[in-house]
Structure formats: C-alpha cells, structure tokens
Design a protein around this nucleic acid. Sequence first.
DNA 1: AATTAATTCAACCATTTAGTTGAATTAATT
DNA 2: AATTAATTCAACTAAATGGTTGAATTAATT
Lengths: 201, 201
Amino acid sequence: MSEELQTQEQILEAAKQVFQERGFSGARMQEIADEAEINKSMLHYYFRSKDKLFQKVFQDSIRQFFPEILKVLNADLALVPKIEKLVETYYEMFKKHPHLPRFVIHEMNQHPDRFRGFVRKEGFEIPERFVEQIKTEIASGTMRKIDPREFIINTIGLCVFPLIARPMVETVFDMSEDQYRQFLEQRKKELPKFILNAVKR
Amino acid sequence: MSEELQTQEQILEAAKQVFQERGFSGARMQEIADEAEINKSMLHYYFRSKDKLFQKVFQDSIRQFFPEILKVLNADLALVPKIEKLVETYYEMFKKHPHLPRFVIHEMNQHPDRFRGFVRKEGFEIPERFVEQIKTEIASGTMRKIDPREFIINTIGLCVFPLIARPMVETVFDMSEDQYRQFLEQRKKELPKFILNAVKR
DNA sequence: AATTAATTCAACCATTTAGTTGAATTAATT
DNA sequence: AATTAATTCAACTAAATGGTTGAATTAATT
C-alpha cells in the first residue's frame, strides 16, 4: 500500500521520459520498465496497456504544456513584460523537459482527432483575454494592425522552433552543445525585441 | 528491365509517403508494399532492409528540403522580395509534401549524429551569402542590429511552425480544414510584413 | 524456338514485442 | 501467530513484423 503511489509515480516518470523521447511507436514497454526499475508486468498491473499508459502520459504532457503558456498569455500584464515572461517560461520549461514540445507536435499530428477531443474535453480556454488585449493595443495605436491569431502563432512558433530543430541549428551554424546553450541564453534577451518590433507601429 | 525504374520509383514514392506520415518506427513494410501495389519482398529485393529504405527516403527528403530553401536564402535578391519568395517557397513545398517538415524534424532528433554526418557529407553550404547580406544591411542602416543566425532561425521557424502545429492551430482557434487553408493564404501576405517589420530600424 | 536473365510473389522463418499468469513475497488485519 | 489482501516478478503466450526463399512468370537474347 505504501509503495503504490511511489511505484505508479515512478512508472509515469519513466514512461514520460521514454515516450517523450521516442514517441509512441518508438517506445518499448521493456525500456520503460527498465527505466522505472520495475518488472514489465507492473506496467500492465498499473496501466493495463501500452495505449492506456501512453494516453495518460500524453494528457499529462498537454496539461503541462498548454495551461502554463495560456496562463501567461492571459495574465494581467502589459504587452512588453508579458512577451518577456512568455519567452522566459518557454525556455525554463524546455530546460526541464527538452523533448516535450516535439513530442506533443509529433503525436498530435498522428492522432489529430484524439488531440482535438482531449483539448475540448479538458476545456482549455482559448487565449481570449490575450486576443482582447491585442485588439485594444491595436485600437489605441500602440501596435500595428495584425490578426491576433497570427501574432499568437508567431510568438509561440518563435519560442518553440529553435528547440525542436536543435540538430539543424547546431549543424547549420556549426555549434557545439555549449555554443547552442549559449545561443539560447542570448536568444532569451533578443527574442522579445524581435517580436515587439514586429508589431510596433 | 523496362519495369525496373518504374517499380523502384513506385516503391520510393510509397515509402516516402508512409515514412513521412508515420515516421520510421511507425511505418510498416507491409503498408509501404500495399501503397506501392507490389509484394513485400520486392522492397527487400530493391532496398535490402527497412533501414536502408528509410535512409534513402530520409536523405531524399533532406535533399528536397534544404537546397531549395538555401537557394532562396543565398539568391541574388533584395531583402524584401527574398523574404516574400522564401515564404512563398515554403508554402508551395508544404502543399506538395505536407508531412515533410515534421518528418525531418522528428527523425533528425532521433538520430542527430546521423543527420549531422549526412548534411556534412552532402556538403550543403551554410547560408553564407545571406549572412553577408544581413551584415551589409545592418552596416548600411537599413536593418536594425541582429545576429544573422537569429534572423534566419526566426524566419524559417515562422514559416514552418503553423504547418507542423496544424492540429493545435485548428483546435485552439476552432478552425475547419478550409478555414485553416484560408488562414495560410492570408498568412502568406502577412508573414513577410511581420518579419521585415521585426528588423526595420 | 530455345536459352538465359530479370522480375515477381506466396509461403515461410526468426525475432521482437505487447500482454498474461500463477506462484512467491510482502504488508496489513485479526 | 494466523489470515487475508496487496504487490512483485520470472516465465510464458500470442501476435506483429522484418526478412528469406525458391519456384513461377515474364522479358530479352541467341
């Protein structure tokens, strides 16, 4: 009894790591079991099947990914500090979960309907307040006219892309691991400038 | 003999489709054979193994992806028409190969060293001329100061992200397939403005 | 037409992998 | 201490999947 929570947590942690790194079809139950330092049959004892376990991990991943970003987007902050905080948030999240964004992107494309259904069910609010904020900024002339959806997608894309395309970035610009990390640090300061300049009047 | 090229081409076309959609680990040799309307053993007759076939498809995909973009980046064009052409090129490529960008991103992250080696071996030139162009623009004061690498990554990221994150875009903004396509069309005009504005002085 | 070479495929094999089971162990309860 | 319930695992099964083979067919060459 005392072990239950710990074991389950251990499994989920291991499953998260393996699934996020290799994707559903690339993941092996044995590898998850090894990672969790338990027997393979425990996975089925706790989660019934690979698919069920994956589902749980995927949903947890989305719950980790979306609300944190949406919270910042909808926060009660002026545009400039909001963008700065958003970039910061993304890069902190990446440090802890380097495979998370690519994992979500890959798997939601494998099962778009399942993804859609889950997001709907979970009731993640659209970044409504942020859309309103953008409209207000445009109306008051502090921001040039732009479709708020474009702005949001651009902002998130700019945060995510260098993370999921890491091997390309390192290869094309001939960076070592360390130079890449350094590049990201520099980027944390530069990116808000880029985004804000793009919508300045 | 007369069939050889046709069959091989058929296999490659089918393999490209299946691998790009499902990834290496998600792809099944049987599905590729079905798609190519041939027997499964033909795959091995022509390509020896799943890995060899995948390698070929992956390399062809990169050959399709990189040089076309690099050609535009390094072209002898002023900044404004160059960015416009780049966006146009990306969106045309996506229409023909909707899974290509995500496929390359996913697989290069699964085997970054293999990717690195291949890009090196293939000798894709870094976008040197474009880097020079950016430096010149900055020096002459037509562009604000920015690390050319940042600018290039931002530009490509902005092109690619809404394509690979399609289910998210459709879900968050509650779009139908058709609305998404329409959104991309609109975006083709808006994106160059965003990029150019971001680096305007 | 006969011979040779290239091409195709149904049936098969070997390995991997998800999933099961029942006995053994451990923990909780009486 | 005895009983009951929860937990763990080694060994197993069933199915999926990559890969092979050899005979049959088709095409090219003489």
